[in-house]
Design a protein around this nucleic acid. Structure first.
Length: 854
DNA sequence: GCAAGGTC
């Protein structure tokens, strides 16, 4: 029997589609990566009985990156990234082993049906799947078609079954347009980001951002926030005047009337209108109206609307809201949370999910009534053909979900119930008055039936006293006419919800990536989230955007993306050549880049105002090995040492504190050593600022710590647990002395209360580790007799063995540690494992250490 | 270390 491999874009869709096509009779198993499942069943395909294997990928299989050597920031001129630097496709998520998985499942299959999402990205993934799978599939008989594309617009029985009988072919042009987008984003984003970062980080010490990034989505996103900031800054309040009239309605009730002119900006004119009305005793009723109006129930919920409400009403950031929604989805409480669609397909069973809510403590009454009296069909929304709107799938209580997840679930559920409820109906009464020559109006609303506002009370029409009944020609006594002086007020900072709306309107990002872009500009310190989730740009964010305004405003305009996308669409439609569009667009941006580099002084002028030069930042810490002057320690991210005399900067390990280390100097380069430590219970080790930036040994990675020069004074021998680590004495750890591995989290506690511990120049005759020279405290010396000094091997010496206890550093939370590392505590009694068979270690310590790195 | 786009 022949086999048909079918691939969807994500595991959940593979399951839904397989269930529909197999009519529920399938057998399922997990794939080798533990994430994707394979659903198998038999059926007919092109008139023959076949075995179907339905599985999925997890989004993109591959991602685009530069060849490794072009990722060295110090060695590559960012301008090269526009054309010279070659790119390669790498597995998007190596942990998932997607290519291997597809090949295991695809081996021996005869046909393939691609069920990827029906958008350009999905079309591109089709070809990623084919690249992986075609080489291992059975060879086709001559002329026989083996590759098919299913096109569907919703995940319903009819749509899926129709797609299955009308299989087509994957669209190469659409896939190419995505290839082009990937390459453009990569080349342009990385070139600008690297240039800006290096340029400004090399000049300013208090930027407080380890990266100064640029991107066709994130930069316009930041642009929106700064645009609002500028509006606030340049706002000039204006004074205006309004007339307010009050008439007597009943004995003890008066009505406030709104002026039909709303407001005027000229005091004298306002005064003139006041004078003309003030003398009038009566207000004439000119007209009355009573209209039944409706407040529409909401459209079914899609991702972007959910994120807006989560931010504005629940106070949850988009990234967090999305994570919470994903958890609710995987636990089965809600349907798939990433969708653009606000329309339920005709065949969608609305009553099923509603019935689930019929006994919920908070809304059972409303739901039961809806079920008994009949639900209202949801409004017609937009069908993007991806997934149904976000729908609660099973009932849940606050206790069950807890906190944030509950609040989001509650909103989703209330919103869903609202979409099948009736509109809110109310009566709007209006009375138009004339006082002298001026016209005034009074309106009032009374609810006829609350409809959906019952389940969404925050949307309800506010209760108002009803207006008095009257008709044209009636008069009311004027109680008062007065002139109020008011001022226009500036807009407030952009709310996250407003920003989402702007991004959606300008096509910046997608429902899945909008939260990521917002998160990026926050994390990079371009904007800060203020109360009410308003986004206030930082001085860095403002300087960046104003700099783009000065140099090349297109870099920050929202049209930067849509203009490129227009070109990409030509590729997708087959109207333009992929190579040509790519080459042309890269050429345009390459010119922009060179102009930007040439004009960077314009942005720099703005930087100077807000930030201090490297030389003026930080405090003197350690001496430079070249000029022997003090270098300054700059604590702001990324922490580093700067020698203003040599104009050199040396980056330091992050996330820890740096101190001077005993004024010792590195024997290789004469730089003063510094001591890095992380947290109170973490590790610490000395390092040479020069060695760790300019590794003296081949193949030693930059930033690998501590530098071998320092190890030469403190290294003891190979780690007892990991392959490549070196055990290093932590010379600051006394009186609870420690020896720690420079790679893994092995820590040995030893020689408690010893006065002094030093690494000796001699090595152990048995295991070749460096000997330790220990001065014990006289009163507590473990040595026989009254000796206080002992030299020996920490692994082999019988005296020392009793004094060494092996542990693991608490530098990271146990939850995040890999499984193999938690070997518990144990006394480091055993001998150090012998070297690899057949390898003889050189005696000399320096060359022994070099052997680890070369 | 960088982009944006999928998804877990």
């Amino acid at each position: 029997m022949k086999t048909v491999l079918m691939v969807a874009e994500k595991p959940s869709l593979a399951q839904s589609i397989a269930r529909i096509l197999s009519r529920g009779s399938m057998s399922s198993r997990k794939g080798l990566n533990g994430t994707c499942s394979v659903h198998e069943y038999t059926g007919t395909f092109t008139g023959q009985l076949v075995r179907f294997k339905m599985t999925s990928v997890c989004g993109h299989v591959m991602t685009l990156d530069f060849l490794g050597k072009y990722n060295k920031w110090d060695k590559v001129d960012p301008a090269e990234l526009f054309s010279q630097a070659p790119t390669e496709k790498k597995e998007a998520n190596p942990k998932l082993n997607m290519v291997k998985f597809l090949q295991v499942e695809g081996k021996g299959c005869d046909y393939i049906v691609l069920w990827l999402d029906c958008d350009k990205e999905g079309e591109n993934i089709c070809f990623e799947v084919l690249d992986a799978v075609l080489p291992v599939m059975n060879q086709a008989h001559s002329g026989e078609k083996t590759v098919f594309r299913a096109r569907f617009s919703s995940i319903t029985d009819t749509d899926i079954c129709t797609a299955m009988v009308r299989l087509g072919e994957p669209d190469h042009n659409e896939a190419l347009s995505v290839d082009a987008r990937q390459e453009l984003d990569l080349r342009i984003g990385c070139a600008f980001t690297r240039f800006q970062t290096k340029y400004f980080q090399g000049k300013y010490g208090n930027l407080d951002s380890s990266l100064i990034s640029f991107g066709p989505c994130q930069t316009p996103t930041l642009g929106f926030c700064v645009e609002r900031h500028d509006k606030i800054q340049s706002f000039k309040p204006e004074t205006y005047w309004v007339l307010q009239a009050k008439v007597d309605a009943d004995k003890d009730r008066s009505l406030l009337l709104d002026w039909d002119r709303v407001r005027v900006f000229d005091r004298e004119i306002a005064q003139m209108f006041l004078n003309m009305t003030k003398l009038e005793k009566e207000a004439q009723v000119e007209a009355t109206s009573r209209k039944e109006k409706a407040k529409q129930r909401p459209l079914a919920l899609n991702t972007v609307e959910m994120l807006r409400v989560a931010s504005s009403s629940l106070g949850m950031g988009p990234q967090h809201a999305m994570q919470t929604a994903e958890r609710l989805y995987t636990q089965g409480y809600i349907s798939y949370p990433r969708t653009e669609t606000t329309h339920y397909p005709e065949s969608f069973d609305l009553k099923g999910p509603l019935r689930q809510q019929a006994n919920h403590p908070y809304w059972a009454d409303t739901v039961k009534r809806l079920l008994a009296e009949g639900i209202n069909r949801p409004r017609k929304g937009h069908d993007a053909g991806d997934h149904p709107p976000i729908t609660p799938m099973k009932s849940a209580t606050e206790a069950e979900l807890g906190g944030e997840a509950w609040r989001l679930y509650e909103y989703i559920t209330r919103h869903f119930i609202a979409t099948v409820s009736h509109d809110c109906k109310y009566l709007q009464s209006t009375i138009s008055f004339r006082i002298g020559p001026e016209h005034f109006t009074c309106t009032g609303k009374t609810v006829i039936s609350p409809g959906f506002t019952e389940i969404m009370p925050w949307q309800s029409v506010p209760l108002e006293e009803s207006l008095p009944t009257c008709q044209r020609g009636d008069t009311f006594a004027v109680a008062e006419v007065k002139m109020l002086e008011k001022q226009t007020s500036p807009p407030d900072y952009l709310t996250e919800a407003e920003l989402i709306t702007l991004m959606e309107k300008h096509g910046i990002g997608t429902d899945a990536s909008i939260p990521v872009h917002i998160n990026n500009i926050c994390q990079r310190n371009y904007v800060a989230v203020e109360s009410g989730r308003r986004l206030k740009p930082t001085s860095l964010g403002i300087v960046l955007v104003h700099g783009y305004y000065k140099i090349d405003v297109e870099l920050v305009l929202p049209t930067i993306r849509s203009a490129v996308e227009k070109q990409l669409n030509l590729i997708a439609q087959g109207k333009a050549d992929y190579r040509q569009v790519l080459g042309h667009t890269l050429d345009v941006f390459k010119r922009k880049f060179h102009y930007f580099v040439d004009s960077i002084a314009g942005m720099d002028e703005l930087m100077e105002v807000s930030f201090s030069p490297l030389a003026a930042t930080g405090k003197p810490l350690s001496r430079c090995g070249k000029c022997h002057r003090f270098m300054k320690y700059i604590q702001a991210k990324p922490s580093r040492l700067h020698c203003s005399h040599c104009d050199e900067t040396y980056t330091l390990p992050q996330n820890g504190t740096i101190k001077l280390y005993k004024e010792l100097r590195c024997p290789l380069d004469d730089f003063e050593l510094v001591l890095w430590s992380s947290g109170s219970r973490g590790k610490s080790y000395p390092l040479c600022p020069y060695c760790s930036n300019h590794p003296p040994f081949r193949d030693m990675k930059k930033g690998e710590l501590p530098g071998p020069a320092c190890l030469s004074m403190l290294g003891i021998g190979q780690c007892v647990e990991c392959e490549s680590g070196v055990l290093v004495l932590d010379p600051t750890s006394g009186p609870k002395w420690r020896v720690a591995c420079n790679r893994c989290n092995v820590v040995a506690h030893c020689f408690e209360n010893a006065h002094r511990v030093r690494v000796s120049a001699d090595t152990c005759g048995t295991c070749e580790a460096a000997l330790l020279d220990v001065d014990f405290n006289k009163a507590r010396s473990p040595l026989l007799g009254d000796g206080t000094q002992h030299t020996g091997c920490v692994f082999c010496d019988p005296v020392f063995q009793e004094l060494v206890e092996l542990k693991h550093a608490a530098s990271c939370h146990p939850m995040h540690r890999g499984p193999g590392r938690r070997q518990g505590r144990g006394r480091g009694r055993g001998r150090r494992p012998a070297g690899k068979p057949g390898t003889r270690r050189p005696k000399d310590k320096m060359s022994a250490l070099a052997a680890y790195f070369v």
